[in-house]
Design a protein around this nucleic acid. Structure first.
Lengths: 182, 182
DNA sequence: AAGAATGCTAAACGATCGTTTAGTTAGATA
DNA sequence: TATCTAACTAAACGATCGTTTAGCATTCTT
């Protein structure tokens, strides 16, 4: 039932999804849904939480075996893209449904989001940026570029690798080759 | 009346906006709205079109007097951010409401969007990227980073300039000379 | 075996949605 | 002045929304 909710929230967004839609796909009656959750936005929070849990798990596993900050950076980007483009709908809900979309749950959704984005903060603090770069802004721009991918990515360009490459080429530190310190 | 619609669509999104909301803010009756537009999604299309017109106008004016590709790049980024963060609600609708949100208008909305993003294609073709960079992917990532800013930008960090700087530092070509900014 | 708790169905609640309809007003036109 | 038209109001339409209620079946507890 959470699965059905995740799919609809991820695909159509919060307001375009009816409780009846979710119930129908889950093969139950609308009333049955309300036996498990109190309100629609509580259902969203449950899905959101599961989504953050999953994307965090995937993120942590991806960088667990890497100790070079630059490689960790790359792995994290790849893991994030896998989560929101390939994997289950849960992670995509986090990107699709903005906290402000649901006033009754805004604060809770922000808190959940923060739980994950905190990881990016630590990751970026790990790499030492060229001077003049602002780590906070860079993080926000990176997350933006990442989270916008569901808008255009259709899976047919040759997999995720080219996207990861371009992402690293833009935001990552220039590979040691060819860049002399100015 | 278009103004009221733009504000609501930009602020709450399409599905969370009721025709009655728009009518009330425009100081008319719901019926009056339907004297001017046939359906809700036709109203959105009208707002979208006006939004694209405005952001294109602002974009073109910003780069009109610049001939150096790198400076044009910077001006364009700044103009885009001004449009969706500072200026009227029309441009923000383009970023907030995705074509897929409104199945009845998806194709038309995509067409309008394309009308603007085409400008970015030309702009990026203007700069010659380091080899290994993919202009199409870079454009998509840049637009993502740009269009995600309304999610986090709250206007108090010190204006748009630091954001523009960071955006250029990530996506722009590295300036050949020593960084002599300010 | 008896009762309580669990997970559900069938049906409905009032509210709100996008939209329509019939009638009214104000200004331009003849 | 009489007529026409553009722009609106007041009121309602059916549909759908989130949610509630009453009751039925199954399982667990004692």
């Amino acid at each position: 039932m959470l699965d059905a909710a995740a799919i609809f929230f991820a695909e159509r967004g919060y307001h375009a999804t009816a409780m009846r839609d979710i119930a129908r796909v889950a093969n139950v009656t609308p009333g049955a849904v309300y036996f498990h959750v109190a309100t629609k936005h509580a259902l969203l929070v449950a899905v959101y939480q599961e989504g953050v849990d999953r994307i965090i798990r995937h993120f942590d596993e991806a960088i667990a075996e890497e100790y070079d900050p630059v490689k960790r950076f790359r792995c994290a980007i790849q893991a994030h893209l896998e989560s929101i483009l390939d994997e289950s709908a849960y992670a995509r809900v986090i990107v699709r449904v903005l906290p402000e979309d649901v006033p009754e749950a805004t604060e809770e959704l922000k808190r959940q989001r923060e739980r994950y984005e905190e990881r990016f903060r630590a990751l970026i603090d790990g790499l030492h940026l060229p001077q003049g770069r602002n780590p906070k802004l860079m993080r926000l721009l990176l997350i933006g570029a990442l989270n916008w991918t569901p808008v255009w990515y259709r899976g047919s360009i040759g997999g995720l690798d080219p996207v990861v490459d371009e992402m690293v080429a833009s935001f990552g530190i220039q590979p040691t080759r060819r860049t002399s310190k100015k």
